[in-house]
């Protein structure tokens, strides 16, 4: 009997803990967002975050996108060889990249690169009293540290994904025409004919969501880290893991919203 009660208690504690964490996180996100509408605004902090999240992530996102497009073309041509391969490959590459792989791959790469750095930076500021110091210098840390990063994540990732879309399709095009010997004109034609605005737009909306999630996880875990170097390390890990899982979960939810009939 006791074993059963212990089990129920453990499950209950876990559920309550999860509820509490979700509540904390929601309040944190809302407070961060609310600062975007109340002055003062920290333009320099925002531009720095844009540089960090957007511009400096370009190389890694670009490389990932090109290779993803190349692999897609290679894999799909083997599978589609029995059917009308040329239009099939172009179709598959352009839809996969714009709807799915562009946003998801860019989101995951940025989660690893930027989410970790954010959590480590803000976490270090927390454990070395720099966040308290901000407060004593009439600066709201949520406004100065969190709000600009949330906004930058929201804006920078769609821009990155736009680049990733183009490079991903380019990667598929290069392999299809140079290696698989498809006709350049027909391939391009197929690509353009199949592509619709909603494919790209849905991908960009996903990207905005993913960018927000990456920034939110980096800020939240950094902001609430405690206990010196080990605490900062744990915060960094949590930020990356949580952001990655949430990206995939929200990817499903958003896909359901956009495309489920």
């Amino acid at each position: 009997m006791n074993a059963v009660l212990d089990f129920i208690a453990t499950v209950g504690r876990a559920v309550l803990g999860a509820c509490r964490a979700t509540g904390h996180l929601t309040l944190f996100a809302l407070e961060g967002l609310s600062h975007l509408f109340r002055p003062p605004f920290y333009l320099r902090a925002f531009l720095r975050a844009m540089l960090e999240i957007g511009f400096l992530s370009l190389p890694v996102v670009a490389l990932t996108a090109v290779f993803t497009g190349m692999v897609l073309a290679l894999q799909s041509s083997t599978g589609l060889a029995r059917f009308s391969a040329e239009s099939g490959v172009a179709n598959l590459v352009v839809l996969s990249v714009t709807r799915e792989l562009g946003p998801v791959m860019a989101g995951l790469m940025v989660a690893g690169r930027v989410g970790a750095a954010m959590a480590a930076e803000i976490g270090t500021m927390r454990v070395t009293d720099q966040i308290d110091a901000l407060t004593t210098l009439s600066t709201n840390p949520m406004k100065y540290l969190v709000a600009p990063r949330l906004l930058a994540g929201l804006i920078a990732l769609p821009l990155l994904v736009l680049v990733a879309d183009i490079l991903g399709v380019l990667g598929g095009f290069i392999i299809s025409t140079l290696k698989l010997g498809y006709n350049t004109g027909i391939y391009l034609n197929n690509t353009i004919n199949f592509l619709q605005t909603e494919d790209v737009v849905s991908g960009l909306v996903k990207a905005a969501m993913f960018g927000f999630l990456v920034s939110l996880m980096g800020c939240y875990h950094g902001y609430n880290s405690k206990g010196g170097a080990q605490g900062v390390g744990a915060a960094t890990t949590s930020a990356v893991v949580a952001a990655s899982v949430l990206i995939l979960a929200f990817d499903y939810v958003l896909t359901e919203l956009f495309f489920a009939r």
Partner: peptide, 30 residues
């Protein structure tokens, strides 16, 4: 709080900003 200044135990300087900007941080902020 604007009328209170605080020297933290380990300085708690903002390591992403140069020294002068650390010193002038409160002035720039308020």
């Amino acid at each position: 709080r604007k009328h209170i200044g605080m020297l933290f135990q380990n300085g708690a300087l903002f390591d992403s900003l140069p020294v002068w900007e650390n010193v002038a941080f409160g002035l720039l902020a308020q």
